[in-house]
């Protein structure tokens, strides 16, 4: 019973991290139909730039090192995303496959340059004392506090995105843009500017995921590919461009991964992909996606 509860909690905390990263991917896809293959690279940009700020402060025992790293990582990834959309993707709007290819090229170059700058040694953030250690919980006993923080962050991101999309003028424009970009532009909205803002926000979420993820598990080569893959599977399962769908997809993928690890470790990967194939067979647009 305790084991089952632990596996369940592990699945949910992993799902929380996946949701933070994949929601940015899904947001960008929803408005611009851009498959951002550089999403994993943006995760790396956020994590590494934040680490460059975090490390000297942590060495001087500054208590705010980690709290500063989070906004720095988000800003770095967000700015990189804005640059990507502004310089490369904006003017080829509508050529979806070409955009995907461009982001693949960017991700190769960015990941390689980060490797050149920071080397291949795995790095990890140290969570501040308040978020470190364990918390007593019923059923499972003691559970790492930071993993609970992950869930809180994901809930915050989810509620924040819901508020942004449902309650603000920007959200109104984004939702209108998802349905009909041309009509939105005809209404006098500066669609390229909205696109820049959405791309920046989606990329900042990748950066947030980068800092949170690199606190929970080391940052190393290949992590970008892992989170790109996870984002893909999450939005394929949940439905592309839908925030609730991304949450459902993240929970299913996180649980599938952890349950698979616990039951049959060397075949665990299959469970995740069986989930994806099953969803595709029944609902090609994803569980909560609208048909194109």
């Amino acid at each position: 019973m305790a084991l089952a509860a632990t596996v369940l909690l592990n699945g949910l905390t992993l799902a929380a991290l996946y949701f933070v990263v994949a929601s940015g991917f899904s947001l960008i896809f929803g408005l611009m139909r851009t498959v951002n293959m550089a999403h994993g690279a943006l995760y790396l940009v956020g994590a590494y730039v934040a680490y460059a700020v975090f490390e000297p402060l942590y060495d001087r025992d500054a208590w705010y090192a980690w709290y500063l790293a989070v906004p720095v990582g988000m800003a770095a990834a967000g700015l990189a995303g804005i640059a990507l959309q502004g310089v490369l993707l904006g003017w080829m709007q509508g050529q979806e496959l070409r955009q995907a290819l461009v982001t693949i090229g960017v991700s190769i170059v960015v990941a390689d340059q980060l490797l050149a700058q920071f080397g291949g040694t795995p790095r990890q953030f140290f969570a501040p004392d308040a978020l470190f250690g364990t918390t007593p919980l019923p059923l499972v006993g003691r559970y790492p506090t930071f993993r609970l923080v992950q869930i809180a962050v994901a809930l915050g991101v989810g509620i924040g995105l819901w508020w942004l999309l449902a309650r603000t003028k920007l959200g109104l424009m984004v939702r209108a843009g998802v349905d009909d970009r041309a009509m939105l532009a005809a209404c006098g909205v500066n669609v390229p500017l909205v696109s820049l803002a959405v791309f920046g926000l989606g990329a900042a979420l990748a950066g947030l995921g980068g800092v949170i993820g690199a606190t929970a598990q080391p940052l190393a080569q290949g992590v970008d590919g892992r989170f790109l893959l996870t984002s893909l599977v999450v939005v394929i399962v949940g439905g592309m461009g839908s925030v609730p769908g991304t949450a459902v997809g993240a929970v299913l993928v996180g649980l599938a991964e952890q349950v698979g690890q616990a039951l049959f470790p060397t075949y665990a990967v299959i469970l995740t992909f069986a989930l994806m194939v099953a969803v595709l067979a029944v609902r090609p647009q994803g569980l909560l996606g609208r048909s194109a």
Partner: peptide
């Protein structure tokens, strides 16, 4: 990778 990425 940087080189081939830029060519690509």
């Amino acid at each position: 990778n940087t080189l081939i990425g830029l060519v690509f």
